[in-house]
């Protein structure tokens, strides 16, 4: 095939134009919606959500997970676009990390030493590490499918970023159910759940996001 013939071929296909941003937005909305319904349909929202909502630890937990999810998701918008730097948004991830460390420091300062272990272990650590990945599945599937239209320089890294975003979205949803509120708990078990999804994203990305 001559290159000129290929150009004719490509021109004939000019009408099919999928825009990455729209695909990602659709994936995000559907993924979060599916996971939200899954949360409501299975374990439900926390029964005493209204009465505890204004306590500092609950506000911190929900605020932290939302901030992390927002920044990680914004990073996905950049990762599949050639010629656009994702570096600034990647550095921004340090912001929620700093917030979390500050939360942990305050928690350690206000709690008596012999209460540390109990708060760290919480009531449902194992379930948290299991259910955050479960709530991440729909966003991960959606973002991964959308990113197949992307052109990431490093498919594994792009998959990991999608996994990070999905994991943080899952954790931001789980926070509305989770009865464990200590920053010590969040810093350990939430991050572990998110890390698992990030790893899964990396492995999927290496296979699925090559182009």
């Amino acid at each position: 095939m001559k290159t000129d013939d290929l150009i004719s071929l490509l021109s004939a296909d000019a009408s099919v134009r999928q825009r990455l941003g729209r695909a990602l937005a659709l994936a995000l909305v559907i993924g979060v919606l599916v996971s939200f319904i899954l949360l409501i349909g299975t374990v439900g929202l926390r029964h005493n959500l209204v009465s505890v909502f204004e306590t500092a630890r609950v506000l911190f937990k929900i605020g932290f997970t939302l901030l992390l999810a927002a920044i990680a998701t914004a990073l996905v918008w950049r990762i599949g676009r050639p010629g656009v730097s994702a570096r600034l948004r990647a550095w921004l991830l340090l912001l929620p990390l700093g917030v979390l460390m500050a939360g942990v420091a305050v928690e350690l300062a206000v709690l008596p030493r012999d209460a540390w272990m109990a708060k760290w272990e919480g009531a449902h650590a194992a379930f948290c590490v299991f259910f955050i990945p479960v709530l991440s599945l729909a966003p991960l599937g959606g973002l991964m499918a959308a990113l197949r239209d992307g052109a990431p320089a490093n498919p594994g890294l792009a998959g990991a970023v999608a996994g990070l975003a999905a994991g943080t979205l899952g954790s931001a949803l789980y926070a509305w159910h989770c009865p464990d509120d200590s920053p010590l708990f969040v810093a350990t078990w939430y991050l572990l759940g998110i890390l698992i999804v990030t790893g899964v994203g990396y492995l999927c990305g290496r296979r699925l996001l090559r182009w």
Partner: peptide, 14 residues
């Protein structure tokens, strides 16, 4: 030709 195909299939990322 491979680059042209990539430009075509990935132009939605621009």
């Amino acid at each position: 030709q491979e680059v042209l195909l990539a430009v075509h299939l990935k132009r939605g990322t621009w």
